[in-house]
Structure formats: C-alpha cells, structure tokens
Design a binder for these strands. Structure first.
Length: 697
DNA sequence: CGGCAATGTGTTTTT
DNA sequence: CACATTGCCG
C-alpha cells in the first residue's frame, strides 16, 4: 500500500497503529485522508480483520463518505467495518441486547417532537399548567440531565426550585412511560449501552474483543456519554485514535464538551500526539481570515495553521440592500461561475438558520439553478406523513402510545377526548399501554384494523404495506371524499413518500419495517434517502457543513443578530462558539469566499435592520474586497425578468399544466411565488409560479 | 364529538 | 408571520 502521498506528520499518524493516539488536525489538514488511510493500512498491511474496526463519525453523511473512501482502497472488506455515528452504533448495541435492557426487540425510537408530546401528556395528567411551566423547557432539562447521566432519583437531590420539583416529577413519569411504551428516546441511544456495560461487564468484554481498533472523528464534539462509551469500548486494548480540533467545537449547546479533546493526554498519559498544521485546502487569504477571526477567542490553545497554497483572491464582501438583493447577488455570481465552467457541485451557500434557505431557494428557482437543500425536515413534518409514520410505528410496536394517540381518531372514528381519557385511566391503573387495554367500542374496531394489517406485514413489501394502511385505515377514502385541493396535496405527498420507500427497496432489496423505521429516525433528511447524481449547488447551515469542503463558498446573513445569532450573544461562551462556527464556515472554502449581508430584511414578518456582523471587522479590511452599490445596480438589470416571466400565470393547486421541458404535470401547491408541480415523467418539482415555460392547459 | 374562529405564542444550531 | 392551542357552538 502506498502512503507516499502523505506528509511526515500524516505518515506518523498512520504507521503508529497501536496504542492511544490524539490527532490534532486543523481545518483542511487532511484528517479524513489520514483516518481512511490508517484504517486501510490496518487491513492491507497489518492484516487486521475489518470486523475488528470501529469508526465513529459525527454525521451519517460523513460515515457514508468514509465508507466509500475506504472501499476505494481495500475493496469489499470495507463493508465489514463498523462505520457509523455514535447514535447508530448505540442503536446497534441496544438491538443486540434489547432483552437484557428490559425492552422488547421491536422498541420504538422517539424523536424530540415525540418526547415533547410525552411531556405534554404527563403535564396534563398531573394537572400542571403548561403556560406556567413550559413543556419544551422541561423536556430540555430532562434531556440535559440524561446526557449528564443524572437519573430522576439523583435529580431530586438537585431540585431546589419550584420548577425543579415539577421537572423531577415529570422526569420520573417520563421514564416510566417510555419503558411502558417499549420506547427509547434519542438520549437513550447513548445512555443504554453504558448502562448495559456497567451491569454486564462480560458483555462489555465481548465488545472490547470485537472492536480492537477504535477511531473517533470530531472528538471535540463528543458529549459525556459518547466520551465514556469511547473510553469503555477501547479500555482493554487501548487502540484508540481520536481526531479533532478544539477550534471547531460547535455543539456545546447540545452537551458536547470540547475539554474531552484537551484532556485526552491526561486520560492516556502514554498517548502519541500528532499535530497536523499544514492546510492543503484553502488559499492563504482564506486561511488568514479564519485565523484572524478565531484568535479573538480567549478560551483557546494557540496554534499555527499554515499553507503552501497560493495567496488567492480577496474575500468578496457584498452589502446588499435587503434579503432579496442578497439572494440576487448570490445567484448572479453563481451564474457567472457556472459560465466559467465551474461545477455546481463545487459551490455551496451557507446560513446560520434553516429559515434563511427560503429566499435563496426562491432566487435559485427564478434562475433555474439546480440546488439541493441539506437538512430539510419540512417533508417529514407534514401532517399526513407524520400520520402515516405513526401507523407504521404502531403496527411495529403496539405499545407506542404516542403513535396510537396520533392516529386512533384519524381518520375520524368518533373516538373523542372522553374515550381516550377513560383508556388512559385504565392503562394507568393496570400499568399497561393504551393499546393493550382496549377492549370495547369504536376503539376495538380500530384495534382490529391494526391487527388485520399486522397479519400481512411479513407477507408484503414496505410499499405495499403503505398502500394497505392507506386503504384499510380509511385514509385514502377519507382524503378522496374531501374533494378539496388540500386533500389532493396530501394524497400527492403520500405518493411521494411511497416513492421514497420504493427507491429504498430498489436499492437495498427487501427491507423490514423495523429497519425502515430505524433509518427514518436516524436519518431524517430526505435528500440522503434519494440517490440523485445530478450536479447541484448545495444549500445548508454552517453546522451541517462541518467536515465538508467546496471551491466556492457563499455565507449569507452575515449580520449581528443573525450571525452571531441574537440568542447566542448573552455570554462570552456562546459568543466564542459563534466565532468557532464562523471559523468552520470560512475554512470550508478552497478557492473563494463570499460574505453577504443585508441592510434590512424581513424577520418574523417584520422589517428589521441589522448592522454587519462583528466577524467582518475581525477578518480585517485588507483581506476584503467590498463590492459596491454600483455594481449591484448593474447586475440587477442583467437579470431580465420580463423575458422569462408572465405577469401572473394564475396557477392554482389542481391545475393541469404543460412545461416546455418536463411535459404535463399537475399543480400540487402554491407557496408564495413557488409552485410545486407533480410531473408525469419527473415527479414532484418546485418551479417559479409565473415562469414562461409553464402553460395552463 | 366535530368544526370553526379567535387568540396566543414563539421564532438557532442536530444526532 | 405561521403555527398551535383554546374555546365556543351546532
């Protein structure tokens, strides 16, 4: 195996393959390369079995990327390596030991919305006024406690205030309810494995034997349970390599503790430390800008990231008039790049909050630039999709009260509050789930529908199962009988969901309901579930872009209040995290960086004006090329809207249209200027409502 | 019980 | 602004 393309430090990191190692890898210093090479080196050169290797990444996307890179070196052996996020790995362990942990193998994973529902339900049962005690706040405290591994009993010792007392009560009931529902929440994915290992040391030993070589990426963003899990699993052989960069710690708000990386040398006194300080990614100017920003952080270890790369061009700073002007500029500039034969895949647009994607998306649609929004949960948040998933979850795990409550009276079956209250009381007394205590009335009819569907589960495919549910539960007939545009849209969305399961089945073969539900809870991003190889500009948050790189990076909303975000400006700690986030964003760029802000923009329905982000000043004038107002006027005129647009196509959902490129389609929904249209050939697409290429039939 | 209208409420980042 | 929840009436 050839490792000549590595520098001396990188080689050192690869060749020293036993014992604990800390790799402090600055942005763009080739840490992914080192990590993948080291794993491949173990397999190809040291004859380590791939199944003895565990590699933990921060996102599912990173896991996928790593798999394919290792595959390209070692071939199909790569499939035997356990490469996943902490959460997926936790799930695997829980699955393998469900009964020991007191769960049936078909347990349900609750997302944070589900957790909130549980909290709300408990508050109601306790007659606690949810206006006085915010359910979200309570859920967050519970989650924080779980992550610090403080259980309800221990928490009672800390409970001093009125609020704490309430939380304590709810926390205790919450945990009991989950158990009763054979359900685990997101925090449990990390905590239950630890519990297992503590109670059954022999099982821990088995895992230690299995995973003799452990790799943890983004170590600065590990939280307490993740930290302990890493430590436990590698305790026997101590072949643990961790990689990270404290300057890129951006998840402390989620309980991550960047001190874990600072303390690694204390945890493993004989560990090897490798510093990767040469940056191969960015231009000198981009790197300088990043360094200028991050050096303003007080709580920080000084480091020297350098590059042999070219000076590069200055960072473009555009002060837009408003958010529309901001996106027009982005579009204008991207169009120019595309004309220079830059691939859309090499461009990304970053923002602080997901809500900011909307205006950018509109501008992209206007100018026919294909794009992909990463982390768009909008689809799975639609009512009809959630309802369908609730049916699937209930069929898989009857004890799932949250799902049952969601669908027991959908479509309307005449089961109202009174009946549900009675069921709840009965369930509480008998210490059973709602489903189990159903024995009469309309509720029983519902139960029978579920039982009937259950009979078929193992005989049919997932896509067929969905059809069966839509049919037997009466969802389809209910929506069809409504004869409203709304209902038609819902039906379309359900079809879209089926196309996701279909793609899934086509690529993975027969997939069980359980596996599919797991996938849904761990990968809640539609774009990750569709394979699409066409070239696209990527839109995502600065948090999601972590670990990735692009030739051209646009950062929008570079304003005080948006970035740094208002809610993160109260303490210095929060502000320093925003600064690290800025550091991450800047260092994603290889060739050219664009920073854009708007003098005024509409926020939460109100016009507001923000001053430029403090990070502009920190970067420094000499690295910036401020694009003036004059040029803005010029490019605005360049986009000749009158040629491409009708005044008003007067499109409405349900209309049948033809499109010059995509052919016949039906309008599914209109959202402002964006029309969602389902085409016969190409499926659902978002287009500008008034585009000339759309004609009503 | 179901439907509708009025009122209120919160608006960051993600596995 | 967008939504979720509440309260009232048929």
């Amino acid at each position: 195996m050839n490792i000549d393309s590595l520098n001396e430090k990188q080689k050192e990191a690869v060749i020293n393959y036993t014992g604990p190692m800390l790799i402090l890898a600055g942005a763009g210093s080739g840490k992914t390369k080192v990590l993948t090479t080291k794993v491949a080196y173990l397999i190809n050169e040291k004859n380590i079995y791939p199944e003895n290797i565990l590699a933990i990444t921060f996102t599912n996307k990173a896991a996928k990327e790593m798999k394919s890179r290792i595959y390209s070196i070692v071939g199909s052996k790569a499939f035997k390596i356990q490469i996943s996020t902490f959460h997926s790995f936790g799930l695997k362990i829980i699955k393998e030991n469900a009964r020991l942990l007191g769960y049936d193998s078909n347990f349900t994973i609750l997302d944070s919305d589900d957790s909130l529902s549980v909290v709300k339900k408990i508050l109601k049962e306790f007659n606690i006024d949810s206006n006085k005690y915010n359910p979200k706040a309570i859920r967050n405290v519970i989650s924080n406690n779980k992550n610090e591994m403080i259980d309800a009993i221990s928490f009672s010792k800390y409970a001093h205030t009125d609020f704490d007392e309430i939380v304590n009560k709810v926390y205790e009931k919450y945990e009991r309810n989950l158990k009763l529902n054979n359900a685990i929440d997101f925090d449990d994915l990390l905590i239950l494995p630890l519990k297992l290992f503590k109670e059954y040391p022999r099982i821990l030993q088995e895992y230690q034997e299995k995973y003799k070589y452990v790799f943890i990426d983004e170590y600065q963003d590990t939280n307490e349970p993740q930290y302990i899990l890493s430590k436990m699993i590698s305790a026997k052989y101590k072949n643990i390599t961790v990689v990270g960069d404290a300057d890129q710690a951006i998840f402390t708000w989620r309980g991550a503790n960047y001190k874990n990386i600072l303390n690694f040398e204390k945890d493993y006194p004989n560990c090897k430390v490798v510093l990767l300080e040469e940056n191969y990614r960015s231009t000198k100017i981009i790197l300088k800008a990043a360094n200028n920003v991050i050096k303003n952080n007080k709580i920080r270890k000084e480091k020297n990231l350098w590059t042999q790369n070219d000076e590069g061009c200055k960072i473009v700073y555009y002060k837009a008039f408003d958010e529309k002007d901001e996106s027009s500029y982005v579009v204008h500039e991207i169009k120019r790049l595309l004309e220079e034969n830059v691939s859309p895949n090499d461009i990304c647009v970053l923002y602080r909050a997901n809500a900011q994607s909307r205006t950018v998306e509109e501008a992209f649609l206007t100018s026919n630039i294909s794009y992909n929004i990463v982390g768009s949960y909008a689809f799975y948040n639609r009512k009809e999709i959630k309802d369908l998933i609730a049916y699937l979850k209930l069929i898989y795990n009857n004890k799932d009260d949250i799902s049952l409550l969601r669908v027991i009276n959908y479509p309307k079956r005449g089961i109202g509050n009174k009946s549900i209250e009675n069921l709840s009381i009965k369930a509480d007394i008998e210490n059973k789930s709602l489903y189990e205590v159903i024995s009469s009335g309309k509720e029983l009819q519902f139960k029978n529908i579920i039982e009937d569907i259950k009979q078929e589960v193992d005989k049919i495919s997932l896509t067929e199962l969905i059809d069966l549910i839509l049919d037997k539960a009466g969802i389809k007939s209910d929506l069809e009988s409504e004869k409203t545009i709304e209902a038609d849209i819902r039906l379309e969305n359900l079809e879209e969901f089926k196309s996701i399961t279909k793609t899934f089945e086509d690529s993975e073969g027969i997939i069980s309901l359980g596996d599919f539900l797991d996938e849904l809870s761990l990968v809640s991003d539609v774009s990750e579930q569709k394979d699409d190889n066409s070239e696209k500009v990527t839109l995502m948050t600065m948090h999601s872009v972590k670990g990735l790189e692009f030739d051209y990076v646009f950062v929008v909303g570079f304003e005080e209040g948006l970035f740094p975000h208002v809610n993160s400006m109260e303490s210095n700690d929060e502000l320093e995290e925003e600064r690290r986030l800025c550091y991450v964003a800047i260092t994603r760029a290889k060739k050219k960086l664009y920073l854009i802000n708007a003098r005024s923009r509409i926020l939460y329905g109100k016009v507001s004006s923000n001053i430029p982000s403090r990070f502009v000043k920190e970067i420094g004038d000499d690295l910036l090329e401020t694009v003036g107002k004059k040029e803005e006027v010029i490019f605005k005129n360049k986009i000749d809207k009158t040629n491409m647009y009708n005044d008003d196509n007067d499109l409405h959902p349900g209309d049948i249209i033809t499109h010059d490129k995509y052919g016949t389609g039906v309008v599914v929904s209109i959202d402002g200027v964006i029309a969602s249209i389902a085409f016969k050939k190409d499926g659902l697409k978002k287009l500008m409502k008034n585009h000339k290429s759309i004609k009503k039939v």
